[in-house]
């Protein structure tokens, strides 16, 4: 068993501020390809693991944000991809406008929980959620994520 939880800060591996996908699978494949490339993992295996997890229980929050993820043994730090879908994505019957796709090392339950709770707390503030959904510029979005989410810039 690994001595877990010596976590490195999660990093942003992909940003898609104008996603055109309207269904869960398309959205995950589009964002998943970039996250996989950044994390150097197999994209098909990653996306199918995320879809499998979604089939167990949806990760969509009532505020229109989804936090899909899959656990990857060989990773060392959490890689996050942010997708904004202005038209909305049908996420198991719920309309989602922002998704945070995560590739999570199996040894980093603490870092994962910390990130998920921080996201949920922050985005329940409607002003912050609207700010996030309105970004057009990647640099501004990265700066916002660094300020409020303490996500490292790459």
């Amino acid at each position: 068993m690994k001595a877990s939880q010596k976590s490195q800060a999660p990093i942003i591996g992909a940003l898609q501020l104008r996603m055109s996908a309207t269904c869960t699978e398309d959205a995950l494949r589009a964002l998943g390809a970039e996250v996989s490339a950044f994390a150097s993992i197999n994209p098909d295996a990653f996306v199918s693991a995320v879809l499998g997890r979604e089939r167990e229980a949806s990760t969509a929050l009532p505020i229109g944000v989804a936090i899909p993820h899959a656990r990857i043994a060989e990773l060392e730090r959490i890689v996050v991809g942010l997708g904004i879908a202005p038209k909305g994505i049908d996420w198991s019957g719920q309309e989602v406008h922002a998704l945070f796709l995560m590739a999570v090392p199996t040894s980093q339950a603490t870092a994962y929980l910390m990130l998920v709770q921080r996201l949920a707390k922050l985005l329940r503030d409607k002003q912050r959620l609207d700010e996030l959904k309105s970004f057009k510029d990647e640099e501004e979005c990265r700066a916002w994520l660094a300020k409020y989410m303490n996500l490292a810039l790459e």
Binding site: R53, S58, T59, A109, L113, Q117
Partner: peptide, 23 residues
């Protein structure tokens, strides 16, 4: 030791399943 600090805010981890944080 891994999940203890987050149990107090369990309602903010509503999307998390036991398998997501298992060793």
């Amino acid at each position: 030791s891994e999940v203890g600090p987050f149990l107090a805010d369990a309602e903010f981890a509503e999307t998390v399943l036991a398998s997501d944080i298992a060793t």
